[in-house]
Simulated scan of single mutants.
Amino acid sequence: MGCSPLQIHTFWVDAKNYVEHTRKWYAETIPFPLNFFLPNCMHKQHLERLQLLWGDGYMEDEEKLEKELYRDARECLTLLSQRLGSQKFFFGDS
């Protein structure tokens, strides 16, 4: 299962998160010498994926993009919550 657009934005596009957490974690986890170039390759792939999903101008207004991503995620979670209702599971309690 792939990452959602919000996860991609949070981990790979948000500059502070990417530099301070995502790239650092991958660089420490991936074995040498892959740790020097693989995180940047992954970063590029995720940016390309967002570009495919949101179009060429997706980064023109990063604040607007982030708001839309959070709105979509919130809408999705609301729909799932409504579907679940008071049941333990989506397709019944057993």
Rank of each mutant, 00 (worst) to 15 (best):
M1I: 10
M1K: 14
G2R: 14
G2H: 13
C3R: 13
C3K: 12
C3P: 07
S4W: 07
P5E: 04
L6K: 09
L6C: 01
Q7C: 04
Q7L: 02
Q7D: 14
I8F: 01
H9G: 00
H9Q: 02
T10S: 10
T10W: 08
T10Y: 08
T10K: 11
F11C: 10
F11Y: 12
F11Q: 10
F11R: 07
W12H: 07
W12I: 00
W12Q: 02
D14W: 05
K16Y: 00
N17D: 03
Y18E: 00
E20C: 03
H21W: 07
H21Q: 11
T22D: 06
T22K: 08
T22R: 03
T22I: 01
Y26K: 05
Y26V: 02
A27E: 11
E28F: 02
T29I: 05
T29H: 07
T29F: 06
T29L: 15
I30E: 03
P33A: 10
L34P: 00
F36M: 15
F36N: 09
F37A: 04
L38M: 12
P39H: 04
P39Q: 04
P39V: 02
N40A: 07
C41Q: 12
M42L: 14
H43E: 03
H43M: 03
H43K: 14
Q45W: 01
H46L: 03
H46W: 05
H46P: 00
H46K: 13
L47S: 06
L47Y: 03
R49P: 01
R49Y: 05
R49H: 13
L50H: 10
L50M: 15
L50Y: 09
L50E: 11
Q51T: 08
Q51S: 12
L52E: 14
L53S: 08
L53H: 00
W54E: 12
W54M: 12
G55C: 06
G55P: 14
G55L: 02
D56E: 15
D56F: 07
D56C: 01
G57A: 12
Y58Q: 06
Y58W: 15
Y58K: 08
Y58A: 09
M59E: 15
M59C: 13
M59G: 11
E60H: 09
E60W: 06
E60D: 15
E60P: 01
D61G: 03
E62W: 00
E62Y: 08
E62Q: 11
E62C: 01
E62S: 06
E63I: 03
E63K: 12
K64A: 13
K64W: 07
K64E: 13
K64V: 05
E66N: 15
K67D: 14
E68G: 10
L69S: 08
L69E: 05
Y70F: 14
Y70I: 15
Y70D: 04
R71C: 08
R71N: 14
A73V: 04
A73L: 04
A73Q: 15
A73E: 15
E75N: 12
L77R: 13
T78E: 11
L79N: 11
L79W: 12
Q82G: 05
Q82S: 06
Q82W: 02
L84D: 05
S86R: 09
S86V: 07
S86T: 09
S86D: 09
Q87F: 06
Q87Y: 03
Q87W: 00
K88M: 10
F89V: 02
F89K: 05
F89L: 09
F90P: 01
F91A: 02
G92C: 06
G92F: 09
G92Q: 05
D93K: 05
D93L: 01
S94H: 09
S94W: 10
